[in-house]
Amino acid sequence: MAANTVLKVDGIDVYYKDFQALWGVSLEAPEGEIISVIGANGAGKSTLLNTIAGLMTPQVGTVEFLGESINNLSAHQAVARQIALVPEGRRIFPRLTVYENLVMGSYAPRARSHKDDNLRKVHNLFPRLEERSSQMANTLSGGEQQMLAIGRAMMSEPKLLLCDEISLGLAPVVIKDIYQRLRKINEEGITIVLVEQDIRQSLKVANRAYVMLEGRVVLEGKPAEMTEEQVKEAYFGI
């Protein structure tokens, strides 16, 4: 495949004050693929996504998006470049209505001018959100809130969608449902980086997988070519 590289993370070290969370992490996401990053709690997966989304800055190494360094972009600038993050814990705006939550997703100028089109697309993808338009977001069920968080990210017209633990705390049926929608999003050519603790679903949809352990990438490759033994070993570090 000669696809363009949308995202290229090259040897980044990221710190929380004195604590080093990432050690020389590298990752590549070709256009239109789903990349899965798995690992136990505290492996640095969220830190990696937050760094790509501009919430944190790497001390060493570079993050490139469509061939340009985005190391020093802050989060609100990254959104304008069409990178969207569905954050861990969903982080919807509880005191805004479902509609207003979606509208906030189109805050960036480019997305704002296509607000109505994008809203229609999101409603097609998640019809439930249209039914609940005028409800306060905190009255939604967990699965609906996750749909809202994804829908809200889609309102910014992303080329790269970062998803942090979207199956956390949801029932298996709901997880299956949400993964189906993710596939649909991906079919439109949007590159997706998934972070999960739950291996099964995310490996099934991924074109390429990275296993992280204690802030490092310890295994990477095509999911089909990884044996269960290898993944387990890398995941638990035994």
Binding site: A75, F93, R95, E100, M104
Partner: peptide
């Protein structure tokens, strides 16, 4: 208005607001 909603969004969740492209 966008700005009015953005102010409310930022007061609900500052980090999420930044992820929407809002310069909080």
């Amino acid at each position: 208005t966008y700005m009015g909603r953005a102010i409310r969004a930022a007061s609900d969740d500052q980090v999420a607001a930044q992820l929407m492209g809002i310069n909080t």
